[in-house]
Nucleic acid binder design. Structure first.
Length: 702
DNA sequence: CTGAGCATGAAAGCAGCT
DNA sequence: AGCTGCTTTCATGCTCAG
């Protein structure tokens, strides 16, 4: 019954490609052991648990009964797969087939034979062919343009090598122009293709038909960055033209930022060159301006707060950006030399954006980590102050891009484990001063056992956790906690075996489980999450809000004490109170943080799409007897310049713009649509930028 | 039809090792 | 420098009961 090539049901790959980090392995391994199976694979160490699910129990039942996994007849389909027969109708089968090929990659002859079935135009192969693949946004992963275009690029309709097309689409050229250029020059002459594409761009050979007609290609799906909400109405031809032009402009902006230019530089270039200018001309203009020092004079001078220098975070993207630009626009003669040089450069060239370890931001309150110095670009100067938040662990290049849009300010990466009993690793981009911060009072308990004293009784000595992991929107199932209870109980009164401990600890850390009874773990209750996140107890309770909605809302919010520490510098600056524009407010993390600091909320414009969340904030506002005005708006995309002007005329402008845009497409927890900043939800970042930038322009005018 | 419950990896960074 | 294993992660979409 046992086969050397037994596929792992959990990751759907064959033995050699199966990694140990898959939770299902733990489930399966443990259950297999408990059912007294004799599986030879299990005899090896935990790290070599591979392909277990193919094992049958002694009584012939499937090993995964407890996991409710379907059984598989290994003698039929899977054996066929092992022999290299594909099952295109099934993803899982296809994966197993890929796994098989991976296992045999060393066998060149055999792999060649499979080339009829599989597209072997991988990056490796392109390199072998001598085609270099330029980085896009510091990553080999397709950038936003490609994300949007890749479906087309890889479709069967495209007769050319998809990587070659992708390569140029990555540079910002439109796909159909790329295909046209390939048609003219052949696939292999990349130099000639590039030149042709540059010529197209300069001559603007196919202007509206390519860009406007398919304007979604490089922009976010939600779009609207530069549009007023008046666009809701049916478009007149004139409006349509305007919309197309704006759409094209933001497409160009996004692509040029992908290439490494700062959003600010691109905007200046657009202003100076006027409308209807091609991307190539804009790029040339920026390069020329930079060589002449035009932009430098505007963008890299003194800080808004006259805070001191920030030596280890200066000179950050500038070099990389310029290299990328040169890489794309270099003349023939120097291109190859420079490209080779750039490719040899270490990847950590922009190491300023690598995540710090420990993640202490610009300094911690207890002086254990000295406050660093930073120097903000002049373009980042307020008013208003602004504060942007998102998950620290994003797909590559995302924070670099966010930073470029937000005036080249480097993110402050902080783990909330230094402020509470739960971790929460987040990046914050803000133009706030960073000296003389203080903590909001009272300081919450800092360990799990202090926050949840009842768990002490049941907490086993072999569970060494004192801090919880990140609070997320999903919680463990009852089935899982039951499996854990059974696993521990099997070991009797003594200490569980090392393997059981490892399994239990893996699940406990993954799902933030705590000990609530003898051998019994449970997910956190919503009110416990509220405490851990710095909210008042029952902040999300009542008003017909379901438990699931509470978990979802809490999983998406700020850690109040962390944010309050950063915002504390505002207290002296605004003794009379503060006007804030709160974007993506959620359940009001920013408002609660300011309130906790004792900063009076004069006027709060809160933009939040979820009605439930708006009700939670409204309820908190009323319960805390706020004396100011709360204006609630549903959709950030509907916030227009006219709205901003209206609010400014009502109460004179905003002191702080604060918010964290959706992380759905950035989070590591997202298995299906981790599409990066251009994802369906996360692209709303551009609305944060749009609104902030419009407001800054208006307030400068004032 | 709605919503709660549940199962579903992969990407990225880090540490340790060779 | 490159490999391997370990750890962490503001989620999504399917199923099924009410």
């Amino acid at each position: 019954m046992y086969s050397t090539y037994m596929p792992c049901l959990a990751c759907k790959t064959l033995n050699n490609s199966c990694k140990g980090g898959n939770s299902n392995h733990w489930d399966i391994k443990y259950e297999v052991q408990n059912q007294g199976m004799s599986c030879p694979v299990l005899a090896s160490s935990v790290n070599s648990v591979k392909g277990i699910s193919g094992c049958s129990t002694k009584d012939g039942s499937n090993a995964n009964d407890l996991a409710d996994t379907d059984s598989i007849d290994w003698d039929t389909e899977d054996e066929l797969e092992i022999q290299g027969i594909s099952h295109p109708s099934s993803t899982g089968r296809a994966s197993a087939y890929e796994g098989f090929l991976a296992c045999h990659k060393k066998d060149g002859e055999k792999v060649r034979k499979e080339s009829d079935i599989i597209d072997w135009d991988s990056e490796d192969e392109l390199e072998i062919k001598g085609l270099s693949i330029p980085p896009c946004s510091g990553s080999l992963k397709p950038g936003p343009c490609v994300t949007a275009c890749k479906g087309e690029a890889s479709s069967s309709a495209c007769p050319y090598n998809t990587q070659a097309v992708t390569q140029f689409v990555n540079m910002g050229f439109h796909e159909h122009l790329v295909i046209k250029a390939i048609e003219e020059n052949g696939e292999k002459d990349t130099e000639a293709i590039l030149e042709t594409l540059l010529t197209y761009s300069v001559l603007d050979k196919s202007p509206q038909e390519s860009h406007v007609g398919t304007s979604k290609s490089c922009s976010s799906e939600s779009g609207n960055y530069f549009l007023d909400d008046s666009s809701d109405d049916e478009l007149s031809p004139q409006n349509e033209d305007q919309t197309n032009q704006l759409s094209e402009e933001r497409e160009i902006l996004s692509c040029l930022v992908d290439m490494g230019y700062s959003a600010e530089d691109v905007k200046i270039a657009m202003e100076r060159c006027g409308s209807g200018v091609s991307m190539a001309e804009l790029a040339d203009f920026i390069c020329a301006a930079q060589l002449g020092g035009d932009f430098d004079a505007q963008s890299t001078e003194l800080s808004v707060d006259n805070e001191d220098s920030f030596p280890h975070q200066r000179q950050q993207n500038d070099d990389l950006s310029r290299h990328k630009k040169r890489k794309i626009w270099m003349s023939d003669r120097t291109k190859n030399r420079v490209w080779k040089k750039i490719e040899k450069k270490p990847v950590n060239e922009d190491k300023e954006l690598t995540l710090p370890n420990p993640m202490v931001g610009f300094g911690l309150p207890d002086d254990s980590w000295a406050v660093v110095e930073r120097r903000l670009p002049e373009t980042a100067a307020g008013p208003p102050y602004f504060y942007y938040e998102n998950v620290a662990f994003t797909p590559k290049g995302v924070w670099e891009k966010i930073s470029k849009f937000l005036y080249d300010i480097k993110p402050e990466f902080v783990d909330s484990m230094f402020f509470s009993a739960a971790a929460r690793k987040r990046g914050y981009i803000h133009n706030l001063p960073i000296h003389n911060r203080f903590r909001a009072q009272p300081i919450p308990p800092q360990t799990i056992q202090e926050v949840l004293p009842a768990t002490k009784t049941w907490w086993p000595s072999w569970d060494s956790r004192t801090k919880l992991n990140c609070i997320q929107t999903a919680v463990a199932s009852a089935r899982l906690t039951e499996r854990i209870r059974k696993a521990v109980e099997k070991c009797g009164d003594g200490t569980p075996t090392r393997d059981v401990q490892k399994y239990v600890m893996y699940e406990c850390k993954k799902w933030n489980l705590v000990w609530v009874g003898r051998n019994k773990v449970a997910p956190l209750e919503p009110d416990e999450m509220e405490m851990l996140l710095g909210f008042p107890k029952n902040h999300t309770r009542g008003g017909g809000i379901s438990r699931t909605d509470r978990y979802k809302a809490l999983g998406n919010t700020f850690q109040v004490d962390t944010v309050a520490y950063h915002l504390s510098v505002l207290k002296d600056k605004f003794p009379g109170g503060i006007n804030i524009l709160s974007l993506f407010s959620g359940i009001g993390g920013a408002e609660v943080a300011l309130h906790k600091l004792g900063i009076r909320l004069k006027n709060v414009v809160s933009v939040e799409i979820s009605r439930t969340n708006r009700e939670i904030l409204r309820s908190w506002w009323e319960q805390t007897n706020q004396q100011g005005n709360l204006i609630e708006i549903a959709d950030v995309q509907q916030v227009s310049t006219a709205n901003l002007e209206q609010w400014m005329s009502s109460f004179g402008g905003f002191d702080l713009v604060i918010g964290g845009s959706p992380c759905n497409n950035l989070s590591g927890s997202n298995r299906r649509t981790r599409d990066g900043l251009e994802g369906e939800h996360s692209s709303l970042f551009y609305d944060y930028y749009r609104i902030l930038d419009q407001l800054r322009t208006l307030m400068r005018g004032v």
